[in-house]
Amino acid sequence: MRLEPIAAPSHARTLGLPALAIAATVLVAALLAALAGANPLQTFGLIVKGAVGSKFATLETLNRATPLIFTGLAVAVAFRAKLWNIGAEAQLYAGALVTVLIGTQMGLPGPLALPIMALAAVLAGALTLLGPVLLKTRLGVDEVVTTLLLNFIMALFISYLLEGPLKDPMGMGWPKSPALPRDARLPRIVEGLRLHWGFALALICAAGVWLIQTRTTLGYEIRAVGQNPQAARFAGIPVGRVLVKTALISGGLAALAGFSEVAGLKGNLTSDLSPGFGYTGIIVAMLALLHPLGVVVSALFVAGIFVGADSMSRAAEVPTYIADILLAAALLFMVLAILLTRFRVVRG
């Protein structure tokens, strides 16, 4: 068997295969639920209900989607330029750290606090990714390795800070930072509803990224560099500089996830602020085929599955990691579907 490129894939392929991928995902999940001794249909019902079945559930899903939109966008922007940023997790924590530092230590006056915190977070995330990218453009060091390693370095660094200099003296010994003052917290979009402005900011960022990609010279450069760096360089596109700009945007977006989690939801920094939002962002971006508006949809989908699976496992005897399996299956089938829209398998 071998793969053969298809010059012009038909609609049946480009639309049918992803649909098939979703069907296959559902099938696998149903099988697993059955294995766990539950009724598959009922399990799905519970997941859907847990994700969007009530106002509370829906708001929970939107809240959970917020950091995923940011990290998904971060990954999508970088991957477009074939810059393999696996370090959104580190950039998220960099953003969260700076948010807490400025929010708790500087005593900024009310209206200024949030914008400055957000900007500083963006800067911190951008700088976190800048190092690996300069190593790549200057010395040819593989960014997959460096960005991945930075995740662990950052996690250890945050642990150290939370056990030491940044530890909340009033925290009864828990490793967490002091809480942000009221002025430094993101307000709710509608009073009384548990949804903060971070979600709106995420939507604005998605629209912004979409504008950059389709309407600006930078977006054009990013696509050119990603698709054919040799031709891009020949045409006079400064490939290294474009990669650096891409990295600044990508790192900044990932850091906003940290900012919005701290300032919008948690109010302080703990070492379990992110249950792997940076990594899940990769799944979100891939499911969205790197399209920034698609990222919003796929982040909502992924968040819904997580939230729904949580609530389902409370109601039924099915463990929550069915959510992880569901996502992994969805990703695998989607990647396969994308491959098969562009190549066909032939014998001989």
């Binding site: 696509r223 050119a224 698709q227 054919n228 040799q230 031709a231 891009a232 020949f234």
Partner: peptide, 9 residues
């Protein structure tokens, strides 16, 4: 193909 154009543009 490789230098003069970007195939999927």
């Amino acid at each position: 193909h490789k230098t003069g154009t970007i195939a999927d543009f």
